[in-house]
Design a protein around this nucleic acid. Sequence first.
RNA 1: GGUGAGUUACUCAAGUGGCCAACGAGGGCAGACUGUAAAUCUGCUGACUAUGUCUUCGAAAGUUCGAAUCUUUCACUCACCA
Length: 399
Amino acid sequence: MVQKALKEIKRGVSEIIDFEYIEKLITRYYKNGTPYTIKVGFDPTGADLHLGHTVLLNKLRTFQKHGAIVQLVIGDFTATIGDPTGKSETRKVMDRDTIVKNAKTYQDQAFLVLDKDKTESLYNSTWFEKLGASGMVALTTQFNVARMLERDDFEKRFKSNQSISISEFLYPLLQGYDSVELKSDIELGGTDQKFNLLMGRHLQRSYNVGKEQAVITMPILEGLDGVAKMSKSLDNYIGITEEPNTIYAKVLSVSDELMWRYYELLSSLEIEEVNELKISVENGKVHPKKAKENLAIELVTRFYNQELANIAKEEFDKVFKSNEVPSNIDEFEVDEPSWICKILVDIKLEPSTSQARRDIKQGAIRLNQEKITDEQMILESGEYIAQVGKRKFAKIKVK
RNA sequence: GGUGAGUUACUCAAGUGGCCAACGAGGGCAGACUGUAAAUCUGCUGACUAUGUCUUCGAAAGUUCGAAUCUUUCACUCACCA
């Protein structure tokens, strides 16, 4: 049992520091049921969760199955500073109201994956507001600038003469201090968080907590473009609250190469099964598209259910395989016959009449499945299905 | 505080008085080919019922028939010195 748990825990992780400690915790849990804690922090900066976040959440869920209590630390205090991780520029500081609102959304969505009964939500402002100025200064004495500059992005910015604000130096310290306060056994984060996670270990020792947390880093999930980290600001994400059809379609649009990455990090298949599948695809037994479909179905099923996943697949095949029109498309009414470009802009299918003209010229616009070529065209009374490119549709009624 | 360099579209980056709605690259969008994959090829990539007009090159003011380009002030970024 313990071995099985440990194997499951190791799946897909990037690095584990102090694996022996985790082994001890799991063994103890299966011997006498003593729970242990695993901490994860998040910045309530962006509200909606995407698949990138679920890499962490899935791992936490695994731990919950094996006796862990998740400490979900909402960095409401730290968010007022802004973690510089992965950003080449200083982050914007956020206001309080937005933080609270985002935290709420985050929790709601996190519980789509996490077991609510085995999760404690904690706002780190509760202890930081008590810490006070002297406590804060005491905290800063635990570390020095040279060590701080060891952190990749600080080093990079320091060398290229970009600004690093003092408050950014505080961020890793504060995140580490969370671990002191919570006496966490394990902390989980992305590979880009490694420095901050180790800080927790360091501080737990300095403050004589009596344990040093194990650290697990998870790989960063690439976005739909396959290059940059999945993030909302780059618009290369799959949100977990998006429509089943959208999730399905977005998964199908990733490259084959990236699909394996997603399989590895997101699928619940055993790693051996993934490898088997990969071999089958390579020697032609399984069509890569079939493999991608399965992944898409698995993911939609996770956030919705099997039935909706199947509907999403049917819908997708209908539109893109047989070139039919989707079953649910937005309808718009137009009061009088008018210029086609103008209508397309009005119903938000096109951003500007200029763009509409260009698209018509390139044959990207269809009316009732027929390509149109006349950019001066006036849409007479009647009903039409307009299509822009491959994926934008609208039903238009002209009175 | 002093001196110097810089700020151009989503990003990088040319342009240094009219030929500039602004070279090029990346990205994005679209078309062909496909599996809405990748790769490849092609076109497009400020707005406007449009062979023309309008607004854009950090901000404002000015010189000029004419400014992204010259002058002044301001803001910001960077380098060197203190």
